[in-house]
Amino acid sequence: MASESVSSHLIRCPVCEAVNVDTGDNVRCRRCGTHIPHPRQSYIRTWALLLTAMILWVPANLFPILRIHTIMGHVDNTVVGGVIALWDDGSYLIALVILVASVIIPILKFIVLLYLLINSRFPVRHRRHVRHRLYTLIEIIGAWSMVDIFVVTALSGMVTFDTFQIVAGTGATAYVLMVFFTLAAALVFDPRLIARHYRTQKPYRHRKASDHGIG
């Protein structure tokens, strides 16, 4: 039944979930026909997307995501500033939701993906199931980081009075791109990089260039 030796030669198709024989390169799913690239392609693409997201995280948190115009002038809110403002208003639950969705989840995704990528190069033998769970977790909760952007969209769409106006801030663009790249990084990450049978192979940089698929 569920034996390790069998599952190390089989992979689940990321598109249709069918079980396929893992021949390394050029796996074509027997059910949906999707081309499943070698994990080394996923490795380098995940790094690229993750680093882009981490760079964008800086302006996304430094610049205001929201600007509130009132008759007294205007106030800028950064992501963290918005959480603090909600907390001061007494909306503790909502403040916590925003804190988790916009601050904790992106950082958690960075840490987990960094850990998984580094781990695929410098393997530790134990806790493979924990790593799988961590990956599933960030895949499921990742999209909730978009909450802040949608709140800004709703607020700036509703509050357009002459004396009271809310508009998006410069950080919003960086934030939306940051979330896009973290989501893409988690989608591109190949769970086979977690599995045991890839850890014993040579690091990918020592492979010849001819091993690469083109495109």
Binding site: M1, S7, R12, E17, T136, A195
Partner: peptide, 9 residues
Amino acid sequence: VMCDRCNSL
């Protein structure tokens, strides 16, 4: 069938 959370077969 392979579990999508922990890859057990």
